[in-house]
Design a protein around this nucleic acid. Sequence first.
DNA 1: AAATTTGGTTTATAAAATAAACCTATTTAA
DNA 2: TTAAATAGGTTTATTTTATAAACCAAATTT
Lengths: 93, 93
Amino acid sequence: MKELDPLLHSQLRLAVMAILMNVEEADFVYLKEKTDATAGNLSVQLDKLSVAGYITVEKGFVGKKTRTTCRVTEAGKAAFGEYVETLKEYLGL
Amino acid sequence: MKELDPLLHSQLRLAVMAILMNVEEADFVYLKEKTDATAGNLSVQLDKLSVAGYITVEKGFVGKKTRTTCRVTEAGKAAFGEYVETLKEYLGL
DNA sequence: AAATTTGGTTTATAAAATAAACCTATTTAA
DNA sequence: TTAAATAGGTTTATTTTATAAACCAAATTT
């Protein structure tokens, strides 16, 4: 049996990636609301995805407020696709 | 977003469940080979699935050799079904 | 009868996930 | 106008999980 990419096989990281696959970009606050994660947990997991090169994380400003924007990279899309295929094999879909 | 049953959202436990969903029964040695897990890890994870009521684990003999046979329960089937549905939502399948 | 293999379990270690505490800048309220 | 609260995070500590290593008893092989 092929192994499931451990970086994606995590509830929160998978949720984040699933969102980013459908959205062009999403900011920290949006991801936090959608996934219902704590800020700390989200921060850590975004960092892992970013270090792995699956997403980009960009810090900017909107007026005077900070805004952290995330996007999935090509590598991230590929990894996600792989993961889905592997999972399908597991589940027999 | 609904949460993914943590008991199933584990590489090895998911692999075991996926096998048992298609096989009526499977013994320890078979599961170990199929999943390529270490005996220790498999033993621990089978125990968790068993405690959760997702599988039954029966120890018996074949000749003089011990044989541990696993089967998925109705509760296990239901949980697995739920998990798959939730996952489909995540992945957009 | 000593050594090896089979079929596991128990215990220790490493890695993840999560939560709690904290930080800086901006608002709001007194 | 300053004290308190809020926004948007990060860092660090704690708890949970997953994994591997060590171990055990019975059977088999040499």
